[in-house]
């Protein structure tokens, strides 16, 4: 089981703050594709990803027990 957390407006798009997905040994890119398909979220392309509260990129491998957080960057000021 991998825990996935949705930050900011992604929480609304996902309809929930966190979900669990089965499996192990995915890349972050694969997790993004799976979630975009399952939950109908349009854009996880330019979203930042943390795995276990550490900055990750699309090639980072996600293992059993990890927590993946998706954080959309903002530009206002």
């Amino acid at each position: 089981m991998v825990k996935v957390l949705f930050f900011a407006h992604l929480k609304d798009e996902a309809g929930q703050e966190e979900i669990s997905i089965e499996g192990n040994g995915f890349t972050v890119a694969q997790v993004k594709d799976k979630i975009a398909a399952d939950l109908g979220i349009a854009t996880l392309d330019s979203v930042m990803t943390a795995v276990n509260e550490e900055f990750a990129n699309d090639e980072t491998i996600v293992s059993e027990g990890d927590t993946v957080a998706f954080i959309p960057p903002v530009s206002g000021g």
Partner: peptide, 14 residues
Amino acid sequence: TFDLWRNQYQSMKV
């Protein structure tokens, strides 16, 4: 990163 309305907070190591 934080969201004050959705009560979220995270400090991500880099």
